[in-house]
Nucleic acid binder design. Structure first.
Length: 726
RNA sequence: GCACGCUUAGCUCAGUUGGUAGAGCAAUUGUUUUACACACAAUAGGCCGCAGGUUCGAGCCCUGCAGCGUGCACCA
């Protein structure tokens, strides 16, 4: 008997050496599979991109969950004989990474990015990104991921940069990308704009002040923005204010002296809220900006980009908002202008990455117009004809509404459609240094947009970079070599499935659909499978600030990577959050041990693992076992095809332990004692069923199954390229 | 405010087209049975959130309510 089997299972050593074997085989690369004859050239394909982890840190339990599901899908499809491609990569995560490096430099050197300058600062960011990249790659290998490393991509490498510039230029030429002064979300802490989706609302207790504004009482939570308010707005149908006419001027005493206010009537006013009257600050409020737009009102900036009050605030000029608010309220009180104050719970908009309180500002920025009509240049979409007038919104909507793509679980289809309904133009320019530089150059009043800089002197490139989701949106095709017309693009796009967490449905999936339908005329994937969040055993979201962060590699060291994968997959349906606990991990560590011991028993009794020996069909036990196994294969294959992976894993676990080990093995002991044909038949039954089980288990627990497979005398090929039983 | 999800054994969750409740872990009791004590055998444990309705029959379908959670919007 094999010497290794006599010892207890040692996952640490096995996992390292097995991964090495896989890598050396080249089978992660579908080209090699074809070359070596394990896949046929005209086989169906299965392709999937890895949602690229951010190079801001190392992998967490959520990433491990994602990797476990995807690798399982990939291994299963490879075993079905499909041309299987899983492309790895990492995401530069522009703002997140830059914010992190800024924090480190501030802490360690007491410097900010301007002290270093753009070039030096970027070097630091790149070093940081490279270090994290290496760790992440290593972690993915430890988890057993069968990624094709020869095709690895980075959202900010040269090829992806070309893809980004190409799409940008195309959109610019089509008039879909435009630059304009519009109200944007400004993060004073990160000193950049952010998109609507990068805002996190936080509840905050605050005061709601009622202020005397001439003959009106207006309500506000932000008295510090009120300096420039010279328009007072009410609903045209509000009978309380019927005597005031639109455009009427009113003299009144305000914070810093007398002003002339103008009455504006607008339908957007909620008569029920507060007093039904408000003043507006178009420069610092999206809603006010829109009102001002409708009535062509003047707009004035009150707060600068550092969150400090401008000279319009008079004696409060230069003060930070937090400091100024109390003082301004005091002054208003002294002037007798505060009529009432109430406690109020407000949702404060904060920047996801920096935590800064978002201040709307009017700025000159780049946008993607989601409502601009253009003739659709492709005839490849099922529900959009060539030259049909479309908008990006329409493209994004059509794909899901017409079920050209299914999202699992489907409740997210509704959420998606709802989100598109509320979608506004996407602000894509960021005032940060780390990212894809906007491919636009200026010279006096001229603007040039192109892949490369203009040849002549005197052109200055736009200082800004692009929202990180711009490059992520191209991921399914930029990783396949687009804009070049590569074989990969022909063979593997659209990808088969997109697997990711439901928390980035809008950030990422929606953007990929937008970019792919626009740029290549294809829906980027056929299916979307969304997984949930990993929580700790108290159901809390895992995060660094809560201190309940579990490192998947620590768990893999303690329990084996196979156990971590099983613990994450079993019992977790699509879209459901999962809880991870020591008990669960321990259970699957025991399972790995069980498999190891089964191998020992089977090999002891059938050392040659010969497959040419007959299994006595007339033996009713044998017949039953074979039928049962056949039913299991059918059942779990059906589950796999319908994305019920959590059931497959559980059923296999149950079969191996409680049918194969507890019943079939126990029964075989008696038969083996009997000797003769009965014994031979029983031995071969064990051998056959065990080999087949290893195949079924392999996508879930690749390491131990591959190791045991390699010990079986009759195994020539790697288990990872064996055929899935049928 | 709008929408969605969850509520089943102590814990984590299954329960696919309605037919009278299931798996793992934990628990209890045995067992040094020559693959495995990381094991085996057995036991116990549930008015399936609450209240109605449809049905011969409901964990599953419908209505309402409650608790928890999520997304979106509003936020003068």
């Amino acid at each position: 008997m094999n010497e290794e089997l006599k010892k207890p299972y040692d996952p640490k050593e096995v996992e390292v050496s097995t991964y090495k074997k896989w890598e050396e085989s080249g089978f992660f690369n579908p080209d090699v599979c074809i070359e070596k004859g394990v896949t046929t050239k005209d086989a169906d394909y299965f392709s999937i991109v890895l949602p690229p982890p951010n190079v801001t840190g190392t992998l967490h339990m959520g990433s491990a969950f994602m990797l476990a599901i995807e690798d399982m899908m990939v291994r299963y499809n490879r075993m079905l004989g499909k041309k299987t491609l899983w492309i790895p990569g990492t995401d530069h995560a522009a703002i997140a990474t830059q914010a992190k490096v800024e924090k480190i430099i501030q802490k360690e050197e007491g410097k900010n990015k301007n002290d270093l300058g753009r070039e030096e600062f970027l070097k630091r960011v790149e070093k940081f990104a490279a270090d994290n990249h290496d760790t992440i790659i290593n972690q993915m290998k430890k988890m057993g991921c069968s990624l094709d490393w020869s095709r690895e991509a980075f959202t900010l490498d040269e090829k992806r940069n070309l893809a980004v510039k190409t799409v940008f230029k195309k959109m610019y030429d089509d008039g879909i990308i435009y630059r304009g002064h519009r109200i944007v979300n400004w993060d004073p802490k990160g000193q950049t704009t952010i998109s609507d989706d990068e805002i996190v609302y936080q509840e905050q207790k605050t005061k709601f002040y009622y202020l005397q504004y001439g003959p009106f009482v207006i309500g506000t939570t932000r008295p510090e923005t009120k300096f420039g308010d010279k328009y007072v707005v009410m609903h045209p149908k509000d009978s309380r204010y019927a005597s005031y006419k639109d455009g009427q001027k009113i003299d009144l005493e305000w914070i810093n002296g007398p002003i002339i206010a103008t009455v504006v009537k607008d339908d957007s006013i909620d008569m029920e809220f507060g007093t039904g009257v408000m003043t507006i600050t178009p420069w610092h409020s999206v809603a006010d900006f829109e009102i001002a737009g409708r009535h062509n009102l003047e707009k004035e900036q009150i707060i600068d980009k550092y969150g400090k009050l401008l000279p319009i605030a008079g004696e409060f000029s230069g003060m930070k908002i937090a400091e100024a608010r109390g003082k301004i309220v005091n002054k208003l009180k002294n002037k007798g202008l505060v009529t009432k104050e109430e406690d109020y719970i407000n949702n404060v908009a904060t920047a996801e990455r920096t935590g800064g309180i978002v201040e709307p500002q009017i700025m000159n920025q780049w946008f993607i117009n989601v409502n601009k009509e253009f003739p659709y240049p492709f005839d490849t979409l099922p529900n959009i004809k060539k030259d049909e007038k479309v908008t990006l919104k329409k493209l994004m909507l059509s794909v899901v509404e017409n079920k050209n793509l299914d999202i699992l679980p489907n409740r997210f289809e509704k959420e998606y459609i709802h989100w598109i309904g509320n979608l506004r133009d996407w602000c894509i320019s960021r005032q940060i240094w780390y990212g894809h530089r906007i491919p636009v150059w200026y010279k006096n009043d001229e603007i040039y947009c192109g892949i490369d800089a203009p040849k002549e002197d005197g052109w200055m490139q736009d200082e800004d970079t692009l929202d990180t989701w711009f490059s992520s949106g191209l991921w399914t095709f930029s990783t396949l070599g687009w804009p070049e017309k590569t074989d990969d693009l022909l063979n593997y796009h659209p990808t088969t499935v997109l697997e990711t967490g439901y928390d980035i449905l809008f950030f990422w999936i929606a953007r990929m659909i937008l970019m792919s339908t626009y740029a290549v005329g294809q829906i980027p994937f056929k299916h979307v499978y969304l997984h949930g969040l990993v929580r700790d055993n108290q159901g809390k979201k895992i995060s660094k600030s809560l201190g309940n962060n579990i490192d998947p590699l620590d768990m893999a060291m303690k329990y084996s990577a196979d156990s971590v994968r099983m613990a994450l997959i079993v019992g977790t349906g699509p879209g459901n959050d999962t809880k991870i606990s020591d008990e669960k991990l321990k259970a699957y560590k025991h399972f790995a041990n069980k498999i190891w011991n089964i191998a020992r028993f089977v090999l002891e009794n059938n050392p040659e693992m010969r497959s040419d020996l007959k299994i006595a069909q007339e033996d009713t036990d044998n017949k039953k076992h074979l039928e049962e196994f056949g039913a299991l294969v059918k059942d779990v294959t059906d589950d796999m095809e319908n994305c019920r992976f959590y059931l497959t894993a559980e059923k296999l676990y149950h079969y191996t332990w409680h049918t194969f080990a507890d019943i079939i093995i126990e029964e075989s002991k008696e038969k083996i004692k009997e000797g003769g044909e009965t014994a031979n038949s029983a031995k071969n039954m064990l051998g056959f069923l065990f080999r087949e089980q290893l195949k079924l288990l392999h996508p879930f627990m690749p390491f131990i199954t591959e190791k045991v497979w390699s010990i079986l005398p009759a195994s020539k090929n790697l288990l990872m390229v064996e055929k899935w039983p049928n």
